[in-house]
Structure formats: structure tokens, C-alpha cells
């Protein structure tokens, strides 16, 4: 009963929008219906079957999963490596590294993307000049455009991983680490056999967070590849949903994509938690 007020607020803020999302996805609901030009009609699973029979959707889904996966792995690798580094360096470099990371974290995604794009600009960018690449365009090729966006995503999301993992490492009793070091364990061995098991709950949280963030990436793709790249080669699900829902005013189809994304993320999270619980860990 004490939970009632919190539940009401949560329900209002969470359940209602999701309910609306689900509801709209079962109707024919475009601008014409919203503004009353045409009656709203119930389509059942019509929007979903339209979506699933669209080959572009599957293609976008595949590239989203691969891209998000690559982002999560790179973010975690960079974040954890720098967290370990933080524990090994002196106070001043640590402060500098922290500040730099926080700066990257605090930069709005739109600004960050625009700056990255400028750095890699074929005509004016410093990167091409330093590397001597002439007027090579980074956003023309599919993989190179995805790679460029990946760099930006990693840059703006590694600080969260780094700070969280660093805090976690600090909480590990130093005797344990000393004992491992005395036993002659290498840095990598300590990380793999001592820190990883002890930090598992923290790593779980940052992994799930990163999966959710990177699966839903929008701004970076939208800004850096100009709304999905050449001939839509760099579309990810969220940008695709935006194109369908808002640019084309097909709100119901956009909602259907939203529901599919929601279910997928939920499934990933549940499976992951389940696996952890099997291993006898409690969050």
C-alpha cells in the first residue's frame, strides 16, 4: 500500500504511453485519421504483417543488431580498459582523464555528431589532412560510415562504463588484488579471474544499459549519415521508425516498429537476467 503513490506515477508515465503505442499499432492511423479527414479503422495485425513482409525492415533489423553489438563490445572494452588504467595512474593524469571523459559524456549527441562529422569532412576535415587521405569521403561506403558512427557512439558512451566500473574496482578490497599480484598474476589475469567475477553485477548493469542505448541509437545516425546514409544504407531501427512514423505520417506503422523494438529489448534483458540467476547470482 505504501507503494501506491509511486505505482500511480509509474503507471501514468510508463504504462499509459506503452498502452497507447500498442493500441495505435493495431489501427490504420495516419495524419488523415489524426486530423479527422478519414475515419480510424481497426487493422488487427495488419501493420505487423506489413512490417514483417517488408524486406527493408529485416535488413534494417539485421544491421541494427550487428551495429549495436559492435558498439556494446567496443564501448565495454574501452570503458573497462580505461577504468583499470585509472586505478594504475597517479592523481593528476587521473584527474585529466576523468575530466576529458566527463566532457565527452556531457556533450549533447547532436553537437558531438556534428563535430565528428566536421573532423572527418572530406574537404575541410583535419583527419584527412593528417592521414594524408586527400578528399576521401568517410560517409560514402556503408561500413566506413557505420565505423565513423561507431567511433562517435563509443566516444560518448564509454565514460558511463568507465566511471561505473572504476567505482566498482575501488570497492574491491585491496588485499584481494595484492594477494593475486603476490601470486604472480598478470594484469590481464587479475582482470579476468579476480575483478570480473567480483564486478559481475556492475558489468551486468552497464552491459544491459549499453545494449538498450546502442540498440536505440538515433541522433548519431540521423545527424552523421544525413538520415540513414546513401540510399538508406545506414538506417537503424529507430531512424527507420522515425521515417515511417513522422516523416511519412504513418503513425501506426511507426508504433508497430516501436512495439517490436520494445519486445526485443525486453526479451534480451530477461534472458540475460535469467542466465545470471541460473549461475546463482543475485542482482
Amino acid at each position: 500500500m505504501y507503494l501506491a503513490p509511486a505505482l500511480v506515477v509509474l503507471g501514468g508515465l510508463l504504462v499509459y504511453p506503452i498502452y497507447q503505442l500498442g493500441l495505435i499499432s493495431f489501427f490504420q492511423y495516419t495524419q488523415a485519421q489524426v486530423s479527422g479527414g478519414e475515419p480510424t479503422t481497426f487493422k488487427g495485425f495488419g501493420n505487423y504483417s506489413e512490417l514483417f513482409s517488408d524486406s527493408q525492415f529485416w535488413q534494417v533489423l539485421l544491421s541494427t543488431v550487428l551495429f549495436a553489438g559492435a558498439c556494446v563490445v567496443s564501448t565495454l572494452a574501452v570503458g573497462c580498459a580505461l577504468a583499470v588504467l585509472l586505478t594504475r595512474v597517479r592523481a593528476l593524469p587521473r584527474l585529466v582523464l576523468m575530466l576529458a571523459a566527463l566532457g565527452a559524456w556531457a556533450t549533447p549527441a547532436v553537437t558531438g555528431s556534428t563535430v565528428w562529422l566536421l573532423l572527418f569532412d572530406p574537404d575541410f576535415g583535419p583527419v584527412n589532412r593528417i592521414l594524408g587521405l586527400g578528399d576521401h569521403s568517410w560517409t560514402y561506403g556503408r561500413l566506413s560510415a557505420f565505423f565513423l558512427v561507431l567511433l562517435e557512439v563509443v566516444w560518448c558512451s564509454f565514460p558511463f562504463v568507465m566511471v561505473t566500473v572504476y567505482a566498482g574496482i575501488r570497492a574491491v578490497p585491496s588485499e584481494v588484488l595484492e594477494a593475486a599480484a603476490l601470486d604472480g598474476a598478470s594484469q590481464w589475469r587479475i582482470w579476468r579471474s579476480v575483478l570480473t567475477p567480483m564486478l559481475r553485477p556492475i558489468l551486468t548493469v552497464v552491459t544491459i544499459q549499453s545494449v538498450i542505448w546502442d540498440f536505440k541509437v538515433f541522433t548519431q545516425i540521423y545527424v552523421m549519415t544525413n538520415g540513414g546514409g546513401i540510399a538508406g544504407q545506414n538506417l537503424v531501427l529507430n531512424v527507420y521508425a522515425y521515417q515511417q512514423a513522422f516523416a511519412s505520417s504513418k503513425y501506426s506503422l511507426g508504433s508497430a516498429i516501436g512495439v517490436v523494438m520494445l519486445l526485443m529489448l525486453l526479451a534480451v534483458t530477461l534472458v540475460y537476467l535469467r542466465l545470471l540467476r541460473r549461475q546463482g547470482e543475485e542482482l
Binding site: A32, I230, A231, G232, Q243
Partner: peptide, 24 residues
């Protein structure tokens, strides 16, 4: 046709041109 707005906003023609230009 009202379909034109959708064709325009879902970038049908730019996509077509870019597919040809990039040799896809």
C-alpha cells in the same frame, strides 16, 4: 495525389538515384 507526400518524405527518388550512383 496524397501519396506524393509519402513518396517525397520517404525519400523514394533520392534512394533510387543513390542506388544507381553508388553502383548498388
Amino acid at each position: 495525389s496524397p501519396g506524393w507526400s509519402e513518396i517525397d518524405s520517404s525519400l523514394v527518388l533520392p534512394t533510387m538515384l543513390q542506388e544507381v550512383i553508388s553502383g548498388k
